[in-house]
Computed example of a mutant assay.
Amino acid sequence: MSFASSRLLLAFSFIAFVLTLGAVAKTAVAEEMPFEPLAEATITVTGHGTLNAEPDIAVVNAGAVTEARTAREALDANTKIMADTFAALQAMGVEERDMQTSRLTVEPRYTYFDSSNGERRPPRIDGYTVSNQLTVRVRDLTIIGEALDALITAGVNQMGGLSFAVDEPDALFAEARQAAVADAMAQAEMLTEAAGVSLGRVISISQNQARQQPPQPQMARMAMAMESADAIPVATGEQELRTTVSITWAIDNGSN
């Protein structure tokens, strides 16, 4: 046998050895790796819980805007309005802790010149505007109409909004969560029964953010027992407390 033939035979033998060694190693690794079972079948359902309740607190956003030639004059006029407002609310039983200044601004008022003739002149300050915004919590809803009237009488000329809420909703939200869990379980049992399987163990439970919805107009109830016949009529309505709960169960398909 020639030298070239010997080298060729040796190369083929080495390649065969490498392939054989690779196959043996692959078999050994496969034998060592544990068998991965199929992923557990699960079902996830979101339940909803809703509860309606009468609000027991009102939040009023109001303010006064005053204008004058100087900032001092505008601020003094605004200060008088807010002082009268605080006094009127306190006389009605609104506590100091329930009145909070939410925004106070002092801004110049500009006059802009007509530049159509090509003349460029900077704007001129010809006065000042002071805005004072107030947030008031009224805990006695029977006086809410009078409180709004008192704000206007004191000189408030901006009404940013009126909203109602349940002041301590924790117990009500607990009931809504129970209703949400019951709703999720009812849905899950219906779905698994239709599919011919049954619910297994609970894997996870998560709750989405609970929140209060604005009063429903169709359920509005006029605030009564107002002492003043001229008080602003206000409908308190009902507050809707809503929460959702998502639950994941294992599915027992009877195969085990």
Rank of each mutant, 00 (worst) to 15 (best):
A223T: 05
N117H: 08
A154G: 00
I143S: 02
G196L: 00
A174Q: 07
V138T: 00
A229H: 12
A147W: 04
I81G: 00
L9V: 14
T142Y: 02
G49Q: 07
L38H: 08
L199S: 03
D56I: 00
R121C: 09
L141M: 02
M159Y: 13
T44V: 05
A231P: 14
N78S: 13
R221S: 12
L19A: 15
S5G: 15
G49K: 00
T42H: 01
T20Y: 11
G93M: 01
M224C: 02
E40T: 15
I15G: 13
Q178F: 10
N61G: 01
G200S: 08
A23H: 08
Q218E: 11
I144R: 04
A91C: 11
I57S: 01
P123N: 12
G49H: 02
P233L: 04
L134V: 14
A88H: 01
H48M: 10
V24A: 12
D114C: 04
V202D: 12
T153A: 07
V245K: 01
Y112L: 03
N52E: 15
N78E: 08
Q213E: 15
F35R: 12
V18L: 15
T27L: 08
L151M: 00
A179P: 00
E95G: 08
F86S: 12
M224Q: 13
S163D: 02
A68Y: 00
Q209T: 14
G200R: 05
D149V: 03
T243N: 02
I152E: 13
F35K: 11
T44L: 07
S206I: 03
E146M: 11
D140A: 07
I247D: 10
L172D: 05
L104T: 09
F86A: 13
T248Q: 10
L148Q: 01
I125S: 05
Y128Q: 05
E107K: 15
G63M: 00
L9Q: 11
S2H: 03
M1D: 10
S6N: 08
V106R: 04
L10K: 10
P108Q: 09
D140Y: 09
W249E: 02
P55D: 01
D140E: 04
G254Y: 02
A165L: 04
R69L: 10
L38K: 15
T66W: 08
R109A: 07
G160I: 07
L9G: 13
L241S: 05
D56F: 06
A231E: 09
D170T: 12
A30N: 02
T135I: 08
F3H: 12
L172P: 11
A28C: 07
A171P: 04
I232A: 09
Q239R: 13
I205R: 10
T111H: 01
V181E: 15
V59S: 02
R121N: 11
M226P: 15
S246F: 01
L134C: 14
L172A: 04
A28K: 05
A25R: 09
M33P: 10
S115Y: 12
G155T: 12
G145D: 03
V94Q: 06
M159P: 04
I144Q: 03
A195H: 00
D140F: 03
L8D: 13
A223N: 06
N117M: 06
A62V: 06
V156Y: 05
S13W: 07
R72P: 07
T70Q: 01
T20L: 14
V156P: 06
A194R: 05
E193K: 11
D126E: 05
M99H: 10
S131Y: 02
T66I: 09
P37E: 07
E32C: 12
S6M: 04
R109D: 04
S2T: 02
T142F: 09
E107S: 15
V65A: 06
